[in-house]
Simulated scan of single mutants.
Amino acid sequence: MPLAFHHLAIQCADLDRCEHFYREVLGLAVLKRWPREGGGDRSVWLAMGDGEHAGFLALERAEEQPEPHAWRDGRPGLHLVALRIGPAERRGWEDRLEAAGVQVVHRTRWTIYFHDPEGNRIGLTHHPHDL
């Protein structure tokens, strides 16, 4: 079996706020909730893609606040989560992000870049297809 995307996990100091962002702003649907001892969620899994082999995004509760960092900080590690959009959807996504108060921090010919509530870099891309 060839390697393929299974899931990505992001640790969130404010799990509720991150879930709201990924569900309400980006439109990802909840697949499963994992409870934590004492109440609330330990983790929320959100659908990424369609079909039997689609992956998911796991939002995991963290105990510490995230460290702020610049768009390109030169540090090693995860730099970006890029999600695929169609070229014709770009304007609609730009409008949706603006309406949600999400600041676009960079644009290229194919990609819109912004941060989630905890500072993780997110991109919406239609590479290699032009508008």
Rank of each mutant, 00 (worst) to 15 (best):
G51M: 01
L46I: 05
L8F: 07
E118P: 00
V102A: 03
E67M: 11
H6M: 13
E89V: 04
H115C: 10
G101V: 11
G77A: 12
D50W: 07
P87F: 06
M1C: 14
A47G: 14
I85V: 07
K32C: 09
R96M: 09
L124M: 04
E37N: 13
W93A: 01
E37A: 10
H6I: 09
A47E: 08
L3R: 09
D50V: 03
T125Y: 02
L3Q: 12
R84W: 09
G38E: 09
F114T: 00
G92W: 05
Q103H: 14
T108E: 08
G27W: 03
K32N: 07
G92M: 06
R96T: 12
V81A: 15
H127W: 15
H106Y: 13
D116K: 04
T125H: 04
S43L: 10
L26M: 08
G40C: 10
R33Y: 03
V44P: 01
R90F: 03
L83I: 14
F5I: 06
G38F: 03
L3W: 10
Y22R: 01
E94F: 08
A29C: 11
E94A: 11
Y113R: 02
E63Y: 11
L57R: 01
L28G: 01
D16F: 03
G92Y: 09
G55L: 06
G123S: 11
H20C: 15
W93C: 00
M1W: 09
L28E: 02
D14P: 02
R107Q: 12
L124V: 05
G27F: 07
V104E: 11
R107D: 10
L131E: 13
K32F: 09
T108K: 08
P35W: 10
R72S: 12
R96P: 01
T111M: 04
S43H: 08
A88V: 10
H6V: 12
G86M: 13
R36D: 07
V25D: 00
R121H: 13
L28N: 01
V25I: 11
A100F: 07
L3N: 06
F5E: 07
A62W: 00
R36F: 08
W34T: 13
C18P: 02
L131C: 06
G51F: 04
E37Y: 09
Q65I: 10
G55A: 07
R90G: 00
T111P: 05
